[in-house]
Design a binder for these strands. Structure first.
Lengths: 214, 214
DNA sequence: GTCTATAACGAGATAGAC
DNA sequence: GTCTATCTCGTTATAGAC
């Protein structure tokens, strides 16, 4: 194996090890040693390749998030109504429980409290998801009677933050998190009904919304 | 000062110190020494009074959550429609940014990953909030056309988890979190409109909901 | 009940051999 | 580029003086 390939391999192992360690033990279980053990690599190599543990965490988180978002881009692109978005959200939530990117982001976010370096890396990674969600929301809302009331950018952040919260919750109370998601899904039917109103009811709703909005 | 009073005082200082330390530095910045410093108390007293750091965290979290929930009980009781609930939620979110109980719970939840003892304490504390939210939701939903569609227990968990997520988000991206909340608030107007439909539209909606539900 | 001192260990990080 | 060895510091936890 060439030196370059060996370097790349070690860096990859370390990044994977960092992600796996966060998933398994949370941000407070992360250390240079625990990562190195998971990666099957010498501890000192973390500092040689990344300079510090925080730096490794940041790039690992960013790289893995990029990959996950990339993996979903096509599926996001096909979403054009609320029902499809809900289905995708549910699938994403289940698949990410396996791949674990949402959990990792949640843990990074927790570690970001009082650690500006981690905070910035995490913010950048989260923005990757948010940008994707915002695009879809913008598309869907344009065709909906509530479209002129809603703020896609803000909503995208609210959605992402909720995913974070649910994923974090699931670690301590799996059944509770499941019940919460099921309840939301059930309630989202309401939005679908609104979305599928006939033209008359639709106009009436629009008028009412205009009245309510300040 | 009597011995009992002195004991109580020390325990109180340690619990307050634990909460303050979590708020300031996150769960990964918590240690026996950092807590003791914040509390202005000798480090060894943590082990004398609580046995371990985890034990201290658990009881501190539970005690402070009890107090916060208690402080909101009366205000929860007066809520009888969605608009009032939204207002209370917003107030709670802002006041808790100061008192910090939601942040603490979020950090505890993060620390609970792979630490069953913390997980149990956190779950118990969260349930205090959930129970309160569930009561209100049950009351409101009973009077709403979507009431028979919704699951108050599940919804309460979803709401609480979202609060957690937003609060965690706010540490890394304050503006983003604010935008997210504002967008949700705006959209919630939709639910209010549905809630205030006339009797005819209300019956139509109910019929549609029945059709959608599987 | 509270303190000092200390044991036993894990942390981040670096130096230097290979 | 990777390893071993090591430094320095912070960690949990305990023993024992007061």
């Amino acid at each position: 194996m060439s030196k370059d390939a060996r370097t790349a391999e070690t860096r990859r192992r370390l990044m994977d090890g960092a992600i796996d360690t966060i998933r398994a033990h949370g941000i407070s279980g992360v250390s240079a040693r625990s990562i190195a053990t998971t990666a099957g690599v010498n501890q000192a190599l973390i500092f040689y390749h990344f300079g510090s543990v925080d730096e490794l965490l940041g790039t690992a988180c960013l790289t893995s998030t990029k990959a996950r978002v990339e993996a979903y881009r096509d599926r996001f692109a096909t979403v054009s109504d609320l029902r499809a978005l809900l289905n995708l959200g549910r699938a994403l939530q289940q698949e990410e429980r396996a791949a674990g990117n949402v959990t990792v982001l949640a843990q990074m976010l927790a570690g970001a409290q009082g650690d500006p370096k981690l905070a910035e890396a995490t913010r950048t990674a989260l923005d990757l998801w948010v940008a994707e969600i915002e695009l879809v929301l913008r598309r869907i809302l344009a065709a909906s009677p509530v479209g002129e009331l809603a703020d896609p950018a803000g909503l995208a952040r609210a959605v992402a933050a909720s995913f974070i919260g649910v994923e974090l919750w699931a670690a301590a109370d799996p059944q509770g998190a499941e019940d919460g998601l099921a309840a939301l899904e059930q309630l989202a039917v309401l939005a679908e009904v609104v979305d599928n109103l006939g033209p008359v009811a639709r106009r009436a709703l629009k008028a009412k919304l205009r009245g309510v909005r300040q």
